[in-house]
């Protein structure tokens, strides 16, 4: 078991290093500091201006170790990322850490309920649909799911702000406040929108899993023993289909932290998603790099945790 965990950890570290290398290639080599500077100060800027910009933002050194083994951007990039020294924003020189700290709270207040409700509503509903498989309820459910999946999230957002916010006045149209007393009313609408946007695909996926599970031998055995259909679904199918469902759920956990990009931005929630959107709009490469890195890091950690817990549950996994 220990060997497996160690191997898994090692592979996680390798993946994270891979991500860092990828980010370096992307943001230092593909988009060279010269490119970045030119994009920041304009295509027609003079070489001197570009040099100044690079110096100001710490990009005025050679990229690769073979150009200068002592002081190069590659080693810098890895060292800083691995010691969680995120540095300053390229756009306004504010420390990125502060931004992450400020953004984490609002992001979590939006994404955690979204995540929990998504599971709490998605799993029972898909179980419900799977229970009625090949009946009108199932077919209607599937059609609804496909339609819901096909609508762009932009339309959901625009529609909700217009309908729920402006016409029905249930919640503020947008905004955020950190005080506990009023926080719920700000995140309510984005949560509803987020649910509408994700439930279609989720229910469809879970339903397939459940339906597939019902065709297995043990289910037939249970039925043959005289178990009622409800009992079969509730006990056997749900329990056995839980692993693929959980995998899908666990993979979403990192997104709790990186925030819901569009929702935060449209509803004026100053979370990490908003930070990312601001970074995009401000060509703020250092912040963007940090966000991708953190997202990947969390993903890798979540994956290791799932894999290890699988191995604990199912000894066969370890041998693979």
């Amino acid at each position: 078991m220990l060997a497996y965990v160690l191997r898994r950890l090692l592979y996680g570290v390798v993946t994270v290093l891979g991500v860092l290398l990828f980010l370096f290639i992307l943001f230092f080599s593909v988009a060279s500091p010269d490119n970045m500077a030119r994009r920041a100060v304009g295509e027609k800027a003079s070489p001197k201006v570009i040099e100044n910009w690079k110096k100001e933002h710490g990009y005025d050194r050679p990229l690769w170790p073979w150009q200068d083994p002592k002081s190069n951007l590659l080693f810098d990039h890895f060292r800083k990322a691995l010691t969680f020294e995120f540095g300053k924003s390229d756009a306004d020189s504010a420390p990125i850490v502060e931004r992450l700290k400020a953004g984490a709270g609002p992001s979590l207040t939006l994404t955690v309920p979204l995540f929990v409700l998504g599971v709490l509503i998605g799993v029972p509903l898909s179980l419900f649909v799977a229970f009625f498989r090949n009946t009108y309820i199932d077919r209607m459910g599937l059609v609804l799911c496909v339609v819901a999946m096909s609508v762009s999230i932009l339309l959901y957002i625009v529609g909700a702000q217009f309908l729920i916010g402006k016409l029905l006045k249930w919640f503020p149209i947008s905004g955020f406040d950190r005080s506990i007393a009023v926080i719920a009313r700000f995140v309510a609408m984005p949560i509803v929108v987020g649910l509408a946007a994700e439930l279609g695909a989720e229910i469809r996926l879970y339903r397939t899993v459940f339906v597939e599970e019902t065709s297995r031998d043990y289910v037939r055995t249970a039925r043959a023993k005289g178990c009622g259909e409800a009992r079969v679904m509730g006990r056997h199918v749900l329990r056995n289909a839980l692993i693929p469902v959980l995998t899908n759920v666990v993979i979403q956990i990192p997104f709790l932290f990186t925030g819901a990009l569009l929702l935060e931005s449209f509803f004026g929630i100053p979370g990490l998603g908003s930070v990312t959107v601001d970074a995009i709009q401000g060509n703020d490469f250092s912040t963007l790099r940090t966000m991708v890195y953190i997202g990947a890091l969390l993903f890798v950690v979540a994956q290791i945790l799932t894999d290890v817990s699988y191995a604990l549950v199912d000894p066969r996994v370890r041998l693979e």
């Binding site: 994009r39 920041a40 100060v41 295509e43 027609k44 800027a45 201006v49 709009q281 401000g282």
Partner: peptide
């Protein structure tokens, strides 16, 4: 039209890189 964000546009003005 060359649309950049406000800060970059300011930077362009500062450097005289606009038309």
């Amino acid at each position: 039209i060359d649309a950049t964000n406000y800060n970059q546009f300011q930077e362009k003005l500062k450097k005289g890189a606009h038309q």
